[in-house]
Design a protein around this nucleic acid. Structure first.
Lengths: 125, 125
DNA sequence: TCCGCGCCTCCCCATCAGGCTAGTTCCCGA
DNA sequence: TCGGGAACTAGCCTGATGGGGAGGCGCGGA
């Protein structure tokens, strides 16, 4: 295995919260395989703030692990049948979880549910 | 004020290049003070690809005015019947527009369509 | 030990979604 | 003047959706 390719990833930090930016900079500074971009340098990857969404969820909706699984599949447009297949459960059970999700997210249907979840930051698209 | 211990920063990795994403995940996995977000979890910070951002914009899907009307109502979870009522058109016409939307957004269903539209910035939730 | 909860399964059933074909107006540009 | 596209309407049909009820199993706390 001659992994001579030094796979150093150049990371730019694009975060307005300077306290957070500094903390991340120092945390990442010591990681081998990662190099922080100098100002203006072209980076392969950027760290951007997701604060808007994070702050936007004062009411942490409590979902069971299974409900989260179902939710992300729903957000990909999966039907109950598709959810059932991918989760290895029956269509009936998938419907059951979707039903609980509609309850907890106060949604009228699956489309409404993923829109609510996205708006509240429970998931991001 | 018992505390100001630096809280753990939750980082989401939003990179389509799975090799790069995996490398970053393993590099960051061992860093104290950083935790990787579980799929769908709201994170404080996200790692995004710099190229991907540029490619994300010029993706202007051309929708007719009517299709936009229908799309925003769909994003609110409206049924075909509700869309028809609010737009003053028949359910058939509503379904017609939804159908074109599914085509143009390359979606399998209305939930998928809303998710795609949101991801591509055609609408925002 | 019993209860509650998460998770799972199954049933019925009314409604909705979406794909199909086919028709109407209106308006713009060749 | 003749397309052609947008917007609208319509019927038909199959499968998906989601609300209801009724259970079973395992685990952790009272």
């Amino acid at each position: 295995m001659s992994e001579e390719v030094a796979p150093v990833v150049v990371v730019a930090i694009e975060i307005s919260d300077s306290a957070l930016a500094d903390r991340l900079a120092s945390l990442l500074g010591g990681v081998t395989g990662i190099r922080l971009a100098t100002p203006g340098e072209a980076a392969a990857v950027a760290l951007v703030s997701r604060e808007a969404q994070a702050v936007l969820q004062p009411d942490d909706i409590e979902l069971t692990p299974r409900e989260r699984d179902v939710l992300v599949l729903m957000a990909e447009g999966a039907s109950n049948k598709a959810i059932a297949r991918q989760l290895g459960i029956s269509v009936h059970t998938a419907k059951f979880h979707v039903g609980s999700l509609l309850d907890k997210l106060d949604a009228t249907g699956r489309t409404d549910a993923v829109a609510h979840a996205a708006r509240r930051g429970v998931i991001h698209l």
